[in-house]
Amino acid sequence: MKVGMVVNPNVLCGIREHAMNFLGHLKTPCVVLSQDPEATSHAQFFESAIQQGVTILHIQHEFSLFRNPEAFTELLEMAALGDVKIIMDLHTGPADKAVILLKSWLELSALCIVHSDNMAGAFPEAVQVPLAVSDESLWAPEADVLVEDSQPIVGTFGFYVKHKGFMDVAQAMATVRRVYPGAKLLIVGSHVLPHQDAYFKSVKNTAQTGPHLLLDRYMSAPEVTRTLAVCDALVLAYRTNGVSQSGAVETIFTAGRPVLISSSTLLSHVPTDVSAGYFPVDASARKIGDALLEVIEKHQLPSCVCVSRTRLVARRGSLLAGIYDSIYEDLSR
């Protein structure tokens, strides 16, 4: 048995980080196979996998990483004919027009893996594996908040894309600053594609109405955690729903600060051993600001226990690797 992990190690994103987090801890023999998102055929890619002795293709799948559906279908068909088992590791759900296509891919696969209750509900035949595993030795201590003159810091993070709600958070700071004029906005962000330029500039212009720090470089999950640990309140203001999940949930809770999140289904997989405050996915910027004020003034979540004083979730590659080793062993029987 040999696993071919299909993930592009040169693409900076949460999916790559998730895979690379446990790869080095696997007991199962494994090689990393990277694919060209624009490829019109994966025949050469598959031939290379066969030559390396791969018997299981574990595909870390996100639709933007395989932009040619015909070529991807061809890859799965070649694997089926070549007696290579496919694991489809779904990190995002399909758009409506891609539902039938995805179902046909799953029929060609030996196993489907998802990472949230939301996705498990949509794909009941799938095996659910967490993106993070609790480990008491890695729980973060409560951070010292670096605030001068009692002026709070509000933090968020992610790629600069519209559905993450950065613009709404930037606008919400106007409400926070009615009480705390020096309140600072910290966005730990990154924009890597040209189509993200306009949104990044809009967020930057809005944030300039008050104290702010907008970072624009990709950071690993541990770097994000350390950076956000200086904040008084953290927020994920996702503005859309869908059959998917976001790894941002696990990352933001490791910072040990009070967390507010929108009711977006993309964020529905909050770990069971932590608490969060919620606001509607379509809440106005002012409502988000009011919720942030409540967190800042009470230093706890609305009607919840402060996350920084409860159990925290940490990413632990060795524990995740153990789960995947068991999956590979079962599949090879």
Results as ranks from 00 to 15, higher is better:
4 G>P: 07
7 V>N: 05
9 P>D: 00
13 C>Y: 07
16 R>L: 03
16 R>P: 03
17 E>N: 10
23 L>G: 00
27 K>I: 06
28 T>I: 05
40 T>H: 12
43 A>H: 11
46 F>C: 12
52 Q>A: 04
67 R>G: 09
74 E>N: 14
75 L>F: 14
75 L>I: 09
80 A>C: 10
90 L>W: 00
94 P>V: 02
99 V>F: 09
101 L>T: 05
104 S>Y: 01
113 I>E: 00
118 N>V: 12
118 N>G: 11
119 M>S: 09
131 L>V: 15
132 A>Q: 09
135 D>T: 15
137 S>K: 13
153 I>M: 08
164 K>H: 00
166 F>D: 00
174 A>F: 03
174 A>M: 09
183 A>I: 01
188 V>N: 00
188 V>H: 01
196 Q>W: 01
201 K>Q: 15
202 S>H: 07
203 V>C: 08
205 N>K: 14
207 A>E: 00
208 Q>M: 02
212 H>S: 12
213 L>Y: 15
225 T>V: 14
226 R>Y: 05
228 L>V: 06
238 Y>W: 10
241 N>A: 08
244 S>H: 05
246 S>D: 07
255 A>L: 09
259 V>T: 04
259 V>S: 01
265 T>I: 05
269 H>F: 06
276 A>N: 02
277 G>L: 03
287 K>N: 15
288 I>C: 09
295 V>T: 14
302 P>T: 01
303 S>C: 08
307 V>G: 09
309 R>V: 06
312 L>E: 06
320 L>E: 07
320 L>W: 08
321 A>R: 03
